[in-house]
Structure formats: C-alpha cells, structure tokens
C-alpha cells in the first residue's frame, strides 16, 4: 500500500536501493559503455553511490535540502566524468527545489525531480533524442506528472515513471548519439542502449521500489 506523503527516510531507502542496484548492475552498465563509450559508467556509478551511502552512514540530514545537497556534492566530488556533474547537479537541484522539508507530497516530489532534470539540461545541454540520460528521465518525469494529475499516489506515479523511463531507455537503442562521447562514433553508436539512460531508468525504478514497498 502506498501513502500520499513520502517521508525523508523513504528517500534514503531509495538512495540505498540505488546504490545496491548500480553495484549489482555494474558490469552491465560498463558493458553498455564499452560498446559506445569508454567502459567506465558502471565503475563511476558504483563508486559514486557507495560514497553517497558511506557519507549518509555517518549521519542523515533531517531536511531534504541538506540531504540532497550532501548527495549531490558527494557525487560531484567522487564520480567525475560526465555522469558525476550531471547526477550531482540533479540531486543538488532537487535539494534546492525541495527546501528544508522533512516530508514530500506528490507535487513537491514532482517539482524536485523536475528541477533536477532541468539542472541536467542546464549543465549538459541535452535535447530529446540526443541519446543521453535525458531520454529516460524526461519521459519518466512526464509520466510521473501525468499520473499525479490523474490522482495517483507518489508511489503509483513513481511506478509509472519507472516504466516510462525504461521505455525511453529502450528507445535510445537505434539512435545515433549527438551528445557525450558516444557521439564520436557517429552511425556506429546506433544499435546500442545509452548507458546513462540505463542508469537513470534504474534510478526511477529504485524510486518506485522504495515508495512502493512499505
């Protein structure tokens, strides 16, 4: 059973679940990045999320702004590469959007996620169809908003978001990349999933899992 509000510890579970997931899928993410990148996306995400949870292990902030600022800064300072600043900015902006709250309602969560995505776009200038994490996150957050508008709970909205993000991730396969290092491959980037789209679809799936379980 899902509830109408999301307490902060549920979002900490989200992050912990995501850490476990990227460690588990580390080889898979690296495999994707080997085909059209430089074979480090799995290591990058595993290193970053491990650092995030290690930091939180020493003490979890009581408000969303502090929590996500910590998560974002940890990612920015431990990942590097393209995914470090992008995921880092995502969480930094989530925290700024949320403010000093200890509990999210659906709208606040949607707004925070949307602010995060806007941050990614501000940093990376990705547009729809460039074959990046944007192409999983954008449809995912679109589905989140749409579900909320139809009266869904945050958990239901997150489940819809995850499913849409996975579809978005799968849609990247035939595309020719126009951003990031995959773009150097030109036509040869077609036929492969984008690694960042895969890791961000996973991020929303973990959100759905964290909110859905109770």
């Amino acid at each position: 059973m899902s509830t109408a509000t999301v307490p902060l510890d549920r979002l900490v579970s989200w992050l912990g679940g995501y850490r476990d997931a990227v460690i588990e899928q580390r080889a898979y993410l690296t495999e994707l990045d080997s085909a059209i990148g430089d074979a480090d996306h799995g290591a990058n995400m595993a290193r970053g999320m491990t650092a995030v949870m290690d930091k939180l292990g020493a003490g979890v902030p009581a408000t969303a702004d502090e929590l996500f600022k910590s998560v974002g800064m940890t990612l920015v300072t431990s990942v590097g590469g393209a995914s470090g600043p992008l995921y880092g900015t995502f969480f930094l902006r989530m925290g700024m959007s949320a403010g000093a709250i200890a509990e999210f309602d659906g709208a606040a969560l949607a707004a925070a996620l949307r602010a995060g995505l806007d941050g990614i776009v501000a940093r990376g200038k990705a547009e729809a169809g460039d074959k990046t994490m944007f192409d999983a996150l954008a449809p995912g957050l679109g589905a989140f908003d749409a579900a909320l508008a139809e009266g869904a709970s945050p958990a239901e909205a997150a489940a819809a978001a995850a499913t849409a993000a996975e579809a978005g991730r799968d849609a990247t396969k035939p595309w020719v990349a126009r951003k990031g290092r995959a773009s150097y491959l030109g036509e040869r980037s077609a036929g492969h999933l984008d690694p960042g789209a895969a890791s961000s679809a996973l991020l929303l799936r973990c959100l759905a899992d964290a909110l859905g379980s109770s």
Partner: peptide
C-alpha cells in the same frame, strides 16, 4: 588525475 578514463572532479 581522475580515475582511469574518467575526468577528475571539480573539488
């Protein structure tokens, strides 16, 4: 120095 093939970080 960043990790292998990974840009170092801003800090």
């Amino acid at each position: 120095a960043g990790e292998v093939f990974t840009s170092p970080t801003p800090d």
